Amino acid sequence: MESNARLKNIHYTSHENLPEQSPMLSENDMDKIIEEYFTKNDQLESMAKIGVGAFGTVIKVKDRNDNRIYALKITTSKGRSNECKILADLDHPCIVKYYNSRLYSDKWLVIQMGYCEMTLKLVIENKNAILKRHVGNKYIELFDYIISWQIYWEIVSVLRYLHHHAKVLHLDIKPSNILCDPNLSHGTLIKIADFGLSIKYEDISHTYTDKCKGSPGYMADENERGKYTPASDVFSFGQTMAHLFNVDMDLEYHIVDYEQPSLLKKQIHNMLD
């Protein structure tokens, strides 16, 4: 499918695309920890660094036993075990697959998860190449429209599942935490990842605290005061969709004809079937 080909042309493995390394630990120090880990665990082959955050690093790895590709998150173990507990209980086609976790050197938590080639952040930054959306163009092509709304509804389905079934707040919905799967595993385009800030309803304090969860630009005002509700995720979702759809008060979107309607019809059928 053409949609798969467009997505596969972009890879999130370049250091130029990575967020800045946290000042809590220098990149050289983290690289030494990673090298030491793979020296002692030769079952996994390190292929590429695909993400760097405030608490650790995500690496693309290959398991030499089954020849499958995984994502390995190496993060500080302090206060992060909750992420594994929450992930292990979740079962949704649009949530990243959790396989296992282990403690390394008493202070590093290693989490093995499903691998996706890119993030929604990278898709948004490369709309011209992936979605053929031109900067400044007031029109959105039908292909772009369908893909964007498919992503929209898949995230909605995850939030419904988290809030109504799993009773979990994600608290860090943003483009870099939404993985895009060009292989359409389970028939879905996206996988929600990074549950490091997530909290179960039963653990939510009903009073304001001094703990702040979320990312600047995507975090609701009440989060800054330590108050968390399902509306916190909805606000972050809205901010994310504003970036995806280029929401602007002066910008109107109109559907234009697609050059290959028969191919588009097949793509829509495959995605929504």
Rank of each mutant, 00 (worst) to 15 (best):
S176I: 11
N128E: 15
D210N: 15
D203G: 01
A129T: 10
R225L: 15
S101H: 15
W153G: 01
H165S: 11
L179Q: 04
L142E: 13
T209C: 06
E154H: 10
S198K: 10
L90A: 12
G114K: 03
D144H: 15
K97T: 15
I86T: 03
W153R: 10
Y98I: 04
A129M: 05
Q112M: 12
S176G: 08
F143I: 03
I147P: 00
D203I: 01
G187P: 03
D91Q: 15
V110F: 11
N223G: 12
L122N: 06
H92G: 09
I151N: 06
G214L: 07
H164I: 05
F195P: 00
Y98H: 08
I155A: 08
S205D: 14
Y99V: 01
S157W: 02
N137M: 03
Y98Q: 01
D106E: 15
N126Q: 12
H163A: 02
Y161L: 12
I86P: 00
A88L: 09
D89G: 01
A129D: 13
P93V: 09
M118Q: 11
Y152F: 14
L90F: 11
E83D: 07
G196V: 13
G187R: 09
E154A: 11
Q150G: 00
I140L: 14
K138T: 12
P175V: 02
Y161V: 12
N126E: 08
K174E: 11
L162M: 12
A220Q: 10
A88N: 13
P182G: 01
Y152V: 04
I111H: 13
I124C: 05
Y115E: 05
Y218D: 00
Y104Q: 05
V110P: 03
M118W: 02
G226E: 09
L120H: 06
I190L: 10
V168W: 11
D89Q: 13
P175K: 02
S105W: 02
D203F: 08
H186W: 02
E83H: 04
E141M: 11
A88P: 00
L169R: 05
E125G: 05
P175L: 03
T119V: 07
V96F: 01
I192S: 07
L90D: 06
G136H: 01
N100C: 14
E222I: 05
A220V: 09
I178G: 08
L120Q: 06
Y218G: 07
V123L: 10
E83I: 08
S157G: 02
E202Y: 04
P93L: 07
T119R: 02
I155T: 08
L142W: 07
W108H: 14
L189M: 13
L162E: 03
R133F: 11
E222N: 09
K127A: 10
I173C: 04
G217E: 07
D194L: 08
G214N: 08
N126A: 06
I111T: 15
E154F: 08
D181E: 11
S215H: 03
L197K: 03
Y152P: 01
D89P: 00
L120N: 06
D221Q: 13
G136F: 00
L197R: 03
V158F: 02
H163T: 05
I192A: 12
D91N: 15
L109W: 10
K211Q: 13
K85E: 14
L171Y: 02
D194R: 08
Q112G: 00
Y98N: 03
S176Y: 04
V96D: 01
I204F: 10
